[in-house]
Every structure is written in C-alpha cells, then in structure tokens.
Amino acid sequence: MTALLSPARPLIRAAAVLLSCAATVPAGLAAAPAAAAPTGPAVYRVAPGASVQAALDAAAPGDVVELAAGRYPGSVTLSTDRVTLRGQGVATVLVPDPADRSACARAGDGVCVTGSSDPQGAPVHTVSGVVVEALAVAGFPRNGVGAAVTDRLTVRGVAAHDNGLQGISVEMSTRTALTDNEARDNGQAGIFVANWYDRKGGALETLGTEVSENRLTGNRIGLQLRRVRGLTVAANLASGNCGGVFVVGDDGVPRAGALTVRDNVVRANNRYCPPNPRLDFVQGTGILLTGTEDVTVAGNQVSDHTGASPMSGGIVLYPSVVGVPNARATVTGNALRDNRPADLADRDPRGTGNTFTGNVCGASEPAGHC
C-alpha cells in the first residue's frame, strides 16, 4: 500500500520518536508525533496515492509537507500559518480530480491559500507565512494557485500551466513574494495580483510585494497588476503572450500605482486575444499603464511587438476603461526596439505629470519621447 510517512523530526529527538518517523501509516493518514516528544517543526512526506490534504491538516506552524515526484489528483488547501508545501520540481504535479468536492476544487483552483473576509471584502482572518514551492499545478478550471487574504506568502519554483483563469492569483494580500515561477498557457494572466478579482474599490497597499524572476509565456496577459500599490516587479521575462505587463487602475481611491516595474525583458507579446466586456482586443502590447499614478517604468528591455489594438506598442500609457488618466508616470532608461506602431506611446491625452527621459528607442507617439 502506498503510504504517507510520519513526520521526520530533528535528530536530537528521543529514540522512540525517531522510530516513529521511520514507520508508515495507511494512505491518507498523517502520523501524530509521540505524546512525549518535544514540540517543533516536522516534515510530513507524502507519496502518490496518499492524501496531501491529510498531511496539511496535520501540519502545525513551521512544519513542511513534502511531496515525492508523481501525480496528485485533487485540490489542496493551506489554512495554517507558516506551513510549507514543497514538491520535487516539475516532477511533482497537482491535477484536477473530478470526484473532489472540497471547497478549493469547487472554486476551480489547484492550491488554495485562503484567509477570510467579510461580505464587503475586508479581511477578517489572514493566513501568514505560507510557502508553496517546487511543484506544478496544471489543468484546473480557474487558478493553478489561488491565494486570498494572506500575509508574507511565498510562491517560488512553481510551474502553473494550462489553467482556465490565472496561473498564480494573489488577491487582498500583503508582503507577497512571487519568484522564479513559470506561468504558461493560462486563460487569463500568468501571474495576477489584485485587491479582488471580481470587485471594484480602492487599490490595496501591498506593503512591499515582490514579483521577480518569473517566466510568463502563452497567457492572455503575462503579468497583471490590478488595483494595487506599493510593490516591485523586477527581472521577469514576459514573451509570447497577447500582452506583457499590465498595470491597471480605475476611479477607486486610493489609486492604483506607487509601484516600480524595472529590469524586465518584455518581448514579442503578439498573440491575438479577443475583446471582453471591459477591454478591447489585446495584441502586441509590451508594458501598459492605464488609470495609474506614480508608477516608475525603468531599465526594461521591450522589443518586437506588433499589433493594431489601441493598446499596441512597446510601453503604452492609455486611459482606463472608465476614463481615468495616468498621473505622474516616470518612464526612464528603457531600451526599446522594433515595436509597432511605436516604441513609446502616450495615448492618454488627459494624463498629467507623465515624463519620458533617457529611453533608447526609434519612434514615439507623440514624437520627441525617444
């Protein structure tokens, strides 16, 4: 019988505890530490066929649930602070299970990291310090990884692909670290960071969220930041999407912005994505700012975009869908080439205080920004 091993305790534990760690238990059950054992972090090792959720339910703050290589049908939920879910890289794959009736599966997500909020969307209980790393989530109807109302969440080394909505979605969360992930061929964004996906309102202050060194390909939008503030997007690759990096705001207060997009490679995002009720068709857009304030776009390499959308171009400023202009954007020190119809395009006639300095490029709208 394939089994879930009991938690591996530190070597200083008593011999009885060490013997317990070497034992196996029936699939789907997590072995409890011996009653006399001192408290401390544990590692729950899970093999294919055993219950990942049972191990997560048994884990205490600081514990690690480690998955062996293999396929794991079903969705999982992390709701305990400072628990780590770790795989063996892309050899560990979470896939949907049609028989799974958990709340996470009914929502259509693969990995759920969820706190709680009141009916107006204000946080009630925040899940803190969770880590999801070194695994793949593929084929879920909604999000590969779906997180909401979290603090200090880390998602790294995750391959999120072929999911119906977002590869990795983080809503109403602070101090998030999304790094070294691959998000490809998802229905909407590869990575999505927002206050809420389905609600308006003022932008969320993320308190220093970082999105860095991710690879985003084949999505509608590589990276979408919507109604958020106070974060950094750095050293990502966005290529082969319909649009590369979108920073999106509206008439909510506080405004979206006060963030930095720097040192990214944004190249050939030329797929065609049809319009939806809130957005024109997307094709050939590198970095787009719409309805934002105080955004810095610096040191990016943006190339090889071509399209006929109103948003097509290398770096584009565009009014939001409700007509809110961009304010005080700083576009500086970027290297742009072969973007059509323009490397730099300010198509936001009501925008105020937006500046273009030190960029290397061939053509701009209006002329003079290169």
Rank of each mutant, 00 (worst) to 15 (best):
V149D: 11
H161V: 11
F140N: 14
L135H: 04
L153T: 01
V145L: 08
V158P: 01
V149R: 02
N143S: 13
G139N: 02
V145H: 01
P141T: 10
N143P: 11
G139R: 06
G157E: 11
H161S: 13
A138P: 02
A138V: 15
V145S: 04
V137E: 15
T150V: 13
N143E: 09
R142M: 04
G139M: 04
R142T: 09
L135Y: 05
G146C: 13
V158W: 00
A148K: 11
A148S: 14
V132D: 07
A147N: 03
V155F: 05
T154L: 08
N143R: 09
A136P: 01
A147G: 05
N143L: 05
V137C: 14
P141Q: 03
A160C: 12
E133Q: 15
G144R: 11
G146W: 02
R156I: 04
P141Y: 01
A160F: 12
A160L: 11
E133R: 15
L135M: 10
A160R: 06
V158G: 00
A159D: 08
G139F: 06
V158K: 00
N143G: 07
R142N: 05
F140R: 14
V155G: 08
A138S: 15
V158T: 01
V149Q: 06
A159T: 13
A136R: 10
L153R: 01
A148R: 13
D151P: 06
R156M: 03
F140L: 14
G139A: 10
V149A: 09
D151C: 09
V132A: 10
F140K: 14
A160G: 11
V145E: 06
V137W: 12
L153W: 00
N143Q: 11
V149T: 06
T154P: 08
A136Y: 05
L153M: 00
A136E: 04
N143D: 15
V137P: 04
G139W: 06
A160S: 15
R152A: 04
A147D: 03
A159Q: 12
A134H: 13
T154K: 07
A159I: 07
D151M: 11
A138Y: 09
G157T: 07
A134W: 07
A134M: 12
P141N: 05
P141H: 03
A147P: 07
A136C: 01
G139H: 08
R152W: 03
V132M: 13
E133L: 10
V132F: 14
A147Y: 05
V145A: 04
L135I: 09
G157I: 07
V132Q: 09
E133N: 14
G139E: 08
L153D: 00
A136L: 01
A134V: 10
P141A: 08
G157H: 11
A138T: 15
P141L: 02
R142V: 12
A159H: 10
A148Y: 12
R152M: 02
R156L: 03
G146Q: 05
G139C: 07
E133S: 15
V145F: 05
V137Q: 12
L135D: 06
V132W: 12
R142L: 08
A134I: 05
H161C: 10
R156T: 09
